[in-house]
C-alpha cells in the first residue's frame, strides 16, 4: 500500500468505469478481458452441444485466446460444466445437509427408481441425466432439485409425486 506505482492522480471523479480510456492502461488488457468470459463461453457451447466435447474445448480456447489445456482446467472445475454427455436435461439433486434432513436420500432413491438409472447415469432414451449436486441455495425448499434453469422444491418423495415432477420438467423444457 505504501509503494504506489505510477503518478498520483485525481480523485475518484476522474474515473469513468468500464469504458475508462486512460485508466485501462493499469487495468486488464484485451486478452484478460477475453479470458474473463471463459465460463460464459463454455456455458453457451454446452447449451448448443449438450456437453463440452473436445471440439468445444478447442473452440473456447480460440474464442478466449487460451490453450486447450487452460480451458480444460476450467471446464473440469465447475459443477455445472459437463465434460461428458449427461442427457438432454440434467436433473441435479441436492444432497447437502438441509435437503438430507428433509428426505433427500429418499428423493434420490425414488428418482433413481422411476428413471431407471443410478446417480451419474443417463436414461436409456437419453432424455435425463441424474446427477448429485451440493447445496443449491434453496434450503428452505428442501428437498429440491435443479432441472434446466428451475429449482423445484419442496418435493415429495413418493412415486406419483416424482413422476409428476418429471412431467413438469418435460413441460417446462417443451415451452422453453
Amino acid at each position: 500500500m505504501s509503494d504506489p506505482k505510477g503518478p498520483p492522480a485525481a480523485g475518484p471523479q476522474a474515473s469513468s468505469g468500464a469504458a475508462g480510456g486512460a485508466l485501462r492502461v493499469l487495468g486488464p488488457d484485451e486478452r484478460a478481458l477475453k479470458r474473463e468470459r471463459i465460463v460464459d463461453v463454455l456455458w453457451s457451447l454446452q447449451k448448443q452441444r449438450g456437453f463440452i466435447d473436445d471440439e468445444a474445448v478447442k473452440l473456447a480456447a480460440a474464442e478466449c485466446d487460451l490453450t486447450p489445456l487452460e480451458v480444460d482446467e476450467i471446464a473440469t472445475f465447475y459443477n455445472l460444466l459437463l465434460r461428458r454427455p449427461a442427457g438432454r436435461t440434467q436433473i441435479y439433486a441436492c444432497d447437502s445437509i438441509s435437503c438430507e434432513l428433509c428426505g433427500a436420500s429418499k428423493l434420490i432413491e425414488q428418482l433413481s427408481r422411476v428413471l431407471g438409472v443410478g446417480l451419474g447415469e443417463v436414461t436409456a432414451d437419453g432424455e435425463f441425466g441424474l446427477l448429485p449436486i451440493v447445496c443449491l441455495g434453496h434450503c428452505e425448499r428442501a428437498p429440491c432439485v435443479l432441472a434446466g434453469e428451475t429449482v423445484h422444491g419442496p418435493l415429495q418423495t413418493d412415486r406419483a409425486s416424482v413422476e409428476a415432477l418429471l412431467q413438469r420438467i418435460r413441460d417446462e423444457r417443451g415451452s422453453a
Binding site: P4, G6, P8, L26, G27, S98
Partner: peptide, 27 residues
C-alpha cells in the same frame, strides 16, 4: 485498507460483490 489519496496510483480499483453463496444451509 484500499489505497486512496497519495497512496493511489490513479488506476482502476474494483468493488467485488460475492454472491457465490454455496455454504450448505445458506440462502
Amino acid at each position: 485498507f484500499v489505497p486512496s489519496g497519495d497512496q493511489w496510483d490513479g488506476g482502476p480499483k474494483y468493488l467485488m460483490c460475492n454472491a457465490d453463496e454455496m455454504e450448505p444451509g445458506t440462502f
